[in-house]
Design a protein around this nucleic acid. Structure first.
Lengths: 418, 418
DNA sequence: TATATTCGTTCAGCGCCCAAACATACTCGT
DNA sequence: ACGAGTATGTTTGGGCGCTGAACGAATATA
């Protein structure tokens, strides 16, 4: 939930050490106040002061500015609940700011508008196999979706603070280039630049580009409602199996943006050969292909969430072969999760992608394996739960990314309209 | 090398968000200046200003205070190397502060004094099997070593800023209690409190207690001289195999202080049964016991670095059985390292403990396995190297821990003598 | 010797937080 | 009904730390 002394910027992290001055103090304390109002529900100024440790005077001036910026609103006098002058409650103003998210995937794209409270206010999707289509064709259509989303936000009266784009591949964060997207067959596509050039309406300035797994993990972190769990691993299942590692509220992308390749952990050395060259990779014995094959499901698309629909039907009616297949996948997954837990000691594992709907059948075998393999299982009970955001985690994370920057620096830019 | 905007305190990390005021600005900038002087060698005030982005005026006042605190010294006028008035060079004063470290292990204890530059200025060790001995007996003797170290620091004119204690077991950082040390047979020992009560001389106030693997990783990070690598994994070999994970200059202890249990990663499902209950754990096929057994070495102690001496002798003369044993361990280790790299995308792996002296024989088979199993191996070359600090990594990390706190807040406490 | 250049210091100015005092609004007791 | 008590929100003076510009100092160049 809360990070270090000064909340690090989500997208642009200048790791070069910078000098600090009073304006940073203001920035930090403004973020602190806003976070307090956001997290601890409606509160009076005095309670915010007590909660943050700031003076009432300081909170007063900061709140004034936050109200002027449209991020916080006074909810009128609270019903007097004791002696003394009752305070005026402050609350986050959800429509005070919003973000637009775009996810480009192999089986279609989605765009959405998310407000400051993390609520999805607009959503538009196009399905269809994108493999083999040129970047130009895809991005042109995607830009139309973003246009619509920006317009929808305008109609809702929500000022858009930025646009996040999630893509299935390796991303150069600094240059904002999609270096490699194997499933799309793209290399070195300047996604942000190209999208902008196809824009019809005027788009707000900050745009961020990131890998979809990363943004999905961030989405879970930011709006997934984990309560206090700021360390978790999001295990995403599809044809491949990936993981987004969040420790102490920080996503770990790895030194070069690789990482999270849970799928190629060795689980069964005598298992089938993997496309990576090794044997017994987790994704060979827990990925979508394996499950469908084992379960005897043949009449299904080979990717995406639609692929599990027929499987779910069989599971629901108790098809033994299907149940056994998923159980076996759950056990394999347990080996991977056990490794994660042994290495990171995370207390929460979130199952996303196709694993989310399969959770009821995966849960028990997975836990059993983890219990057997994790040294500290007795002391540190592991929470395993399905993704709260489901398939939309990445879009939501993308849309919310600019809002995180805003929350970290609420008074940095100009104010906004009502 | 450099972390986020405000360097987080190493030992006590108050994760509750705090308000910030001008004193934090000062703290941060003082740390920035000191870090600049430390890292970028002797520099004039003006160059420090240019390098940090602060004003010359600000740097001037901060440097005055750092000199008053004894942490920085003027090295006289530099040889004029161009037009304009030459600047007076500033340098870190190594004897401006020091830390005392104590490591308690199964096969003895070590105490040392480390100065601000990371140089070991005093070292005293006692060998001997500590298993089964009572905490009281051990801690009483250990306190004597610390007494000596404190006295030695005094004789050297180095003001001691704190004492770090490394123990082989599970530590409660907040309560400073050693919860469980299986190899020593201890439970719930208030190490810091007890040590203090046995002290003869006066010990400086901050004492920190941590797991030896964690402190070894921090030692490598702080004084191991990695250059710019602030993300790495320290793989420590002994009877067990542990890992210290450092990402972006931050050590990850895990939610509850477990974690880094690389030894119980599954490597060979059909392998021997492990004491943890599972089969094929890494430490069963790469740990000290396995290597010695496989190599046919019987006349050796069962733990510590002494245990590898006879093995090293055989390796040096090309004993085939020994070479094969280590090679096999290297391959198993490669599987574990590959998993680490896949999950974290670290670019550096440091081999410590018994793996450090065995590095020349482990390196090649380990790399081969990693190359085969890691997806991104082609793009992201992995650096594997032996620990720079060797067996003393944990003591050095322990001794340096208080100094990290000092570097993060150089003007927090009182000044010191010359 | 005069000028340009760089270094280090000094001095107002400003922004921010804090502490304390003040005005406000409501409850409680008589 | 009315004052005492309590909690909220605002105003004011003070301190601290950074900035920017100006100034003396030390050296190279013309």
């Amino acid at each position: 939930m809360s990070t270090g002394p000064i909340p690090p910027s989500a997208s642009r992290s200048l790791d070069r050490p910078r000098p600090t001055d009073q304006s940073d103090v203001r920035r930090h304390n403004a973020a602190l106040v806003l976070d307090c109002v956001d997290a601890a529900g409606p509160l009076s100024r005095a309670r915010v002061a007590a909660h943050t440790g700031l003076t009432r005077a300081t909170v007063g001036t900061i709140v004034d500015e936050l109200i002027a910026a449209g991020l916080v609103s006074e909810k009128g006098t609270r019903a007097p609940s004791g002696v003394g002058r009752p305070g005026t409650d402050l609350a986050l103003r959800p429509e005070g700011a919003g973000g637009v998210g775009l996810e480009i995937n192999v089986d279609g794209y989605v765009a959405s508008v998310v407000d400051l409270a993390g609520t999805v206010r607009h959503r538009a999707a196009r399905s269809g196999d994108l493999r083999g289509r040129t970047a130009t064709a895809v991005l042109r259509t995607a830009a139309r979706l973003v246009d619509d989303a920006v317009a929808a936000a305008y109609d809702l009266g929500i000022p858009v603070r930025g646009i996040g784009v999630a893509v299935p591949g390796l991303v150069d964060l600094g240059e904002q280039v999609l270096r490699l997207a194997p499933n799309l067959g793209w290399t070195d596509v300047r996604v942000v630049e190209r999208l902008r050039s196809y824009a019809v309406t005027t788009w707000p300035s900050p745009m961020v580009l990131d890998n979809e797994a990363n943004l999905a993990a961030l989405g879970e972190l930011w709006v997934g409602g984990h309560g206090s769990a700021d360390s978790f691993v999001l295990v995403n299942g599809d044809v491949g199996v990936g993981a987004g590692v969040v420790l102490d509220g920080r996503l770990h992308r790895g030194t070069r943006g690789f990482g999270g390749e849970l799928g190629h952990l060795t689980v069964a050395p005598d298992g089938p050969e993997c496309r990576c060259g090794a044997r017994g990779c987790l994704e060979q014995v827990a990925g979508l292909d394996f499950i469908l094959r084992q379960a005897g499901v043949r009449d299904a698309p080979r990717t995406g969430e639609d692929a599990v629909a027929p499987l779910l039907a069989r599971l629901a009616r108790g098809d033994e072969r299907a149940v056994a297949a998923v159980r076996q996948a759950g056990e394999s997954l347990g080996v991977g999760v056990a490794a994660l837990v042994n290495l990171f000691d995370v207390e929460t594992v979130v199952l996303g992608g196709i694993f989310a709907p399969l959770f009821p059948w995966l849960d028990e075998p997975l836990r059993a394996v983890v219990r057997r393999r994790v040294l500290s299982a007795a002391w540190a009970p592991l929470t395993v739960r399905p993704s709260a955001l489901g398939r939309d985690a990445a879009v939501i994370g993308a849309a919310y990314a600019p809002l995180r920057d805003l929350l970290a620096d609420p008074l940095g830019a100009d104010a906004s309209v009502a």
